[in-house]
């Protein structure tokens, strides 16, 4: 059973790589990608911690609800571990 995760729905101002349209949405981890420097520190010239990064797959139905163009089509995005809640 794939790991199910939800993107945190917080909306801090500033440079964040979790797209707004995916905040609060549930998907599953398609594959782990390794650890990368945290862009939220790199963007401000700070020394960056390495953060695990995952490709998370969502259905269009989950993202857009009844407005989905085709509910079973999917969207993959790369989301850092600190933006994910395990379900």
């Amino acid at each position: 059973m794939a790991d199910r995760v939800r993107v945190k729905s917080m909306m801090p101002p500033g440079h964040v790589r979790a797209p707004a349209y995916l905040r609060g949405k549930t998907g599953y981890i398609e594959r782990p990608l390794g650890a990368f420097g945290n862009p939220e520190q790199l963007a401000y010239g700070l020394k960056a911690d390495k953060k695990p990064l995952y490709r998370v797959r969502f259905t269009m139905a989950e993202i857009w609800g009844d407005d989905a163009e085709n509910p079973s089509d999917t969207l993959d995005a790369e989301i850092y571990d600190h933006w994910l809640e395990r379900l």
């Binding site: 790589r17 979790a18 797209p19 990608l33 990368f36 862009p39 990064l53 085709n70 089509d73 999917t74 969207l75 993959d76 995005a77 790369e78 989301i79 850092y80």
Partner: peptide
């Protein structure tokens, strides 16, 4: 259709 959003690295 599988869309891939290049959000990070």
């Amino acid at each position: 259709v599988r869309v891939h959003d290049s959000t990070a690295d």
